[in-house]
Design a protein around this nucleic acid. Structure first.
Lengths: 196, 196
DNA sequence: GATTGAAATGAACAATTGTTCAGTTACTGT
DNA sequence: ACAGTAACTGAACAATTGTTCATTTCAATC
């Protein structure tokens, strides 16, 4: 028999995304079966295929969705008229904040690259590179204006990304520091790293 | 029929580790089957179970082995008589060098934590924490001696680890920079981050 | 109250999974 | 040459996988 609640399609679609994100982040794409997802949604396996052509696309959509949200959120935040240092501060704080707010999506976007087909991987990698290029552009601007100094702009970009993204691996909501403090500390570390 | 070459057990054992590390690093633990490993080794599935009680233990041994090697290699490198800044330089350079030399093992150690049983996870996490604690101790020593200054020793530790470990995600042997240069650049970035 | 169309079921499918083990092969020491 | 043993095979197993689809359920419309 069908669900007794009057759940319409769009709601199920959204629930599938949420549940899939949670399960995949916790156990990994290959370790989570469509049946597990269906059970967690409260539905039979077959029903999932009304919303996704296959499991791979389900993962791909999650990752693309996340990366596009990062991009557009940063576009809306980037103080493009400000100087490089101010923009760098905005970027660092944004990155930490955004990642702390979406730890599961971040996890998946960084851990499940291997699970993508080559075609899907190419799409996701392009999105990632685009985002990282924005940071690198800020650093190079700063170098040109002599308000930022680093040994190598490219390495500094990757070092910053790695350092900032790593926050998701240790931060806990019930820990010693709240998000605001963590955001501030990371920016102070970053500024020391790049200041002239 | 058995192998025609006169391969003895120890060689097969070693080959299994190598092949498993390569395959798991490339496709992930859950996505690699025992049959794939066996085929790559040049053996039938059943033969693997002469060397490992099960698949989970195979993964666990790889990870424990790697982390123990990191620890003992650092113990042999740590200039314990030197000052905190010098020790920090040694740590940063060691970490980058060691990770660039073992990208697959590093990948597995960071990506497959979810694939471990709770008991095995606890063991691996303890090893990781021990290693990270060494870095944190150096930073705190430096703070006490007023030769290192950071906003927060704990966060700085995690930021450094994240930044240094991230090198494996972008470094390519045929890239613009060789390992020595990368090692040096990372240390310069780290030093700027923590200097008083 | 009958009709419709979307939503979901539930059973089936071929393939693949980790693991076991009785049997075969190859090597070592005598 | 022979026995003993370690290494390995090859087939089998129960369970689980992603995916399909004829059928059923349900809510809205006429």
């Amino acid at each position: 028999m069908a669900r007794t609640q009057g759940s319409i399609g769009a709601e199920t679609h959204e629930k599938i995304r949420e549940v899939a994100e949670e399960l995949i982040a916790a156990h990994g794409y290959a370790a989570v079966s469509m049946r597990q997802i269906a059970t967690a949604v409260g539905v039979q396996v077959g029903a999932l295929y009304r919303y996704t052509p296959d499991k791979q696309t389900l993962l791909f959509d999650l990752m693309r969705n996340h990366l596009e949200q990062v991009q557009s959120a940063w576009d809306a935040t980037d103080p493009t008229d400000a100087g490089p240092v101010e923009r760098l501060e905005a970027f660092c704080r944004f990155h930490v904040r955004f990642h702390l707010d979406r730890p599961r999506a971040v996890f998946i976007a960084y851990m499940e690259l291997r699970s993508l087909t080559p075609e899907n991987y190419a799409v996701i990698e392009t999105l990632r590179n685009t985002y990282e290029a924005r940071l690198e552009a800020i650093i190079r601007d700063g170098q040109d204006l002599r308000v930022i100094r680093v040994p190598d702009a490219r390495v500094a970009t990757m070092a910053l990304i790695g350092m900032l993204t790593g926050v998701t691996t240790w931060y806990r909501d019930d820990g010693r520091l709240d998000r605001g403090r963590v955001e501030r500390i990371y920016w102070r570390l970053a500024r020391r790293m790049v200041k002239v």
